[in-house]
Amino acid sequence: MKTTYREAMRAAIRDAMRRDERVFLMGEDVGRYGGGFAVSLGLLEEFGPSRIRDTPLSEAGFVGAGIGAALGGMRPIVEVMTVNFSLLALDQIMNNAATLLHMSGGQFNVPLVIRMTTGGGRQLAAQHSHSLEGWLAHIPGLRILAPATVEDARGMLWTALEDPDPVLIFEHGSLYNVAGELADDAGAVDIDTAAVRRPGADVSLITYGGTLPTTLDAADALAGEGIEAEVLDLRTLRPLDDAAILATVAKTHRAVVVDEGWRSGSLSAEVSARITESAFYDLDAPVGRVCSVEVPVPYAKHLELATLPSVERIVAAAREAVGSHG
């Protein structure tokens, strides 16, 4: 059936709520408003205000309450409207969710799922366009997911809820309206592995989340030039699927990492470093990177487009990699 990323995410929440009475959704405007991005529209009517729980504007308070509820035996899904606002809850995410199991010597795990939108591209300017999943992926104790397809939007949540430890799901804002085919019996998917979204032999384009469609478009454009790009969707940003990254590099000998985060200290830097550490002698060209320009994301459309990774920049980086000879 044809569905959108938003509908797939909503179906995932509905499914989880039906399967396990310990599951509840909590966040700003998830109930009566239907969710800042309309993901939870209609769920209040089905599950009631206790399980579709509107919160005050208190990111630290309700993210922390989610941690406490998880400690108390529930399986909360906490929605933080955007990653930008999650900075107000960073204390709870980093100092509590990520550390409690270790500090307590293994006594207190935190089975919590936090969902949030991420990324730019919608002319929302500097305070609503951050891509900070790479930052969060720095933290031991967390698992970081970036569903980029309708299958993953539908399937990652349930697997995340089964994880005994905190899982953060980053939903790129530009993906909600993307439509795709979803099997009628689509269900849980793994949250451990990266996936090859397009096979190719000439260069590996490694990406995740909101830049997957852009990267696939770039691969199509490259095909028109006779360059067959393999597109690897990381899916899980922590822990990274090293084997899949190294496998694609071993196959194509060339890699370009596409990441909407800023280049300095980014997830792309981590991926690049792992390739250099473990697959240096497989490489026929330096690892390339396409990231956001290091500027607070501007409002004006042309400036924003110039900031974010684009098909043109990805194509150019791939050409450069292919043009290099080892």
Partner: peptide, 23 residues
């Protein structure tokens, strides 16, 4: 715990109580 970020334990307490209330 044993929480060493001042006030960081309060939201946890709220969540523990929420779990009791919901259960």
């Amino acid at each position: 715990g044993g929480n060493a970020i001042v006030a960081g334990g309060l939201p946890l307490a709220v969540g523990l109580a929420l779990a009791d209330r919901m259960s």
